[in-house]
Each structure stands twice: as structure tokens, then as C-alpha cells.
Design a protein around this nucleic acid. Sequence first.
DNA 1: AATATAATGCAACATAGTTGCAATAAAAAA
DNA 2: TTTTTTATTGCAACTATGTTGCATTATATT
Lengths: 126, 126
Amino acid sequence: MGIIRKTKSVKTLLNEFNKNSSAISVTELITRLNSKFNKTTIYRVLDKLEDDGVLHSFLGKNGLKWYAKCNGCTADNHSDVHPHFQCLDCGKVDCLSINITLPKIPNRKIDLAQFLIQGQCDECLT
Amino acid sequence: MGIIRKTKSVKTLLNEFNKNSSAISVTELITRLNSKFNKTTIYRVLDKLEDDGVLHSFLGKNGLKWYAKCNGCTADNHSDVHPHFQCLDCGKVDCLSINITLPKIPNRKIDLAQFLIQGQCDECLT
DNA sequence: AATATAATGCAACATAGTTGCAATAAAAAA
DNA sequence: TTTTTTATTGCAACTATGTTGCATTATATT
Ligand SMILES: [Mn+2]
Ligand SMILES: [Mn+2]
Ligand SMILES: [Zn+2]
Ligand SMILES: [Zn+2]
């Protein structure tokens, strides 16, 4: 079930994601909003925003959970099958709007795929 | 640093991986060998076997750590950049010997990539 | 303003993984 | 074979991420 009431925590979290287009890890959000909201609230709001098709989640380095804004998703129609890029220098994570071609695998049904690419981002390269 | 002494735990763990070619999660190994070895030992031996190029590790569903046998790797030359497939029905994880073509990303340097595909395995399909 | 209930905070819990240190066991030396 | 060296182990305590139940609070509706 998604979000029903526009509470302070919902507005604050949405605001964090509107600052720029980068993904944000849950631990980073908890650190940032530590004084304002309980971590349980943050986990729950993020979960609902994902249900609503506002955010999508994925696992970054070390299996940490990250969230990023969706692009034209709705509650019934999520389509966030794109690779993610994590910079090993600064830690920043971005969604890559690249069409990844899933390999054909005999005798197996593919439901979903997650692709995490690691290296150095544009800013850290120079 | 890798393995120096062929201890019971080393032999036992290698034996687990020689039963078949599937990957094994650390938690599964801890459960299996619970009565014989401490979990700390298991974590440490796996870590060393990876250093030696005997096993390689990756993250499966929920960010859990999995290990699988390497194929012709040495301590100085690991090359385990292949996709992994996890069955959502039985949980089994396999290495896919498929050559994945990394997408070209402008202004970024790619160091490594992990590709986890989820769905149904051959056995669970029928 | 009164009501219904979604959302929150808190404490307690679950699980994966790590660390320091004393005790043990494998390999080398005697 | 016995002694010595030190790599490895077990244990307990810890860190970190994430979850759950329940009483309290805040939002939206009447
Ligand atoms: Mn994304
Ligand atoms: Mn593999
Ligand atoms: Zn960077
Ligand atoms: Zn299966």
C-alpha cells in the first residue's frame, strides 16, 4: 500500500530527491534526517513511495539499499530495468538511461535483472 | 593473504564446493557446518580462498554474499566477470558462462560490473 | 469541533558480518 | 619423535542494516 497522507516526512524525503537526480542510500538519508525523523519512518515512507511508482530501489556496493526517482512510473507500471553506476572514489550512484540487452539463457525464465557497474564518475576522473 | 595451512575447515569447505558446480551462500554454509566450525572461521576461510583465486564471491538477492568455484583463476589473475542467475523459486544460484558486453558510458571509467539475473531455473520451470 | 485512522516514535528484535584475544593445531625445525 | 613456531580457530562482544508491535500523534474527513 502506498502513501495516503502528505506528512512532513513524505515532503522532506521527496525534497531530498528533488535536489538533484542522483540516487541516495537509505543510510545517507537516515544520517541526514536523523534529528527530524526516526529511521523506521524513513524506511516506511521510502517503501511506500516505491509502491506508488515515485521512487525505485536497488542494491549498491556491499548490498546497501539505494533509492532514486522514477521516470514516468505509476503504481501499476514500474519499469526501472536500467543499470546503475557507482563511483568507487566519491560513492555517488546514478541511474544509467541505457537500454541493456538481456542475454538469452536456454531453459530459464528471466523475471528481473540488476546491473551494477562500478568505477570512476566524470567528476572523479579529472 | 591466502591460505597457508590445509586445515580441516579448508578441506571441508572445498569439499562443499566440489559436490556440484552451483554457488553457495555464506549463510547456507554456516547452517550446514554449524556443528563443526564457528561462523567466524567460515567467513575467514572463504575470504582466503577468494584471495587464492580458488573461489569468487558476489552478492545475490537481498545483498547476501555467495561464493562459487573459479575457473582457471590464480591469486594474481582473477577474471570472474560473468552474470549470475538466481532462481526465485528454489533459490539456487549459478554462474552463467556468458560473455556480457559492457555498455559504453561517456566520461566514466569502468572497473567492474556485477550482473544478477533473477527468474526460474530449468528444474523449477517444468 | 469531533471523529476515524494513517502515520509516527520508540524499544526491542533479527540477521549478516567483523574484531580482539587467548587457546589450539599444523607445519617446520631440532 | 619431540619441540618450537605461528597460522588458524573459537568465543564473546560488537557493528550495521533492516524489521516488528504497539501506544501515541497528526492528518484528513464528517
Ligand atoms: Mn535507477
Ligand atoms: Mn560466478
Ligand atoms: Zn565520483
Ligand atoms: Zn529453481
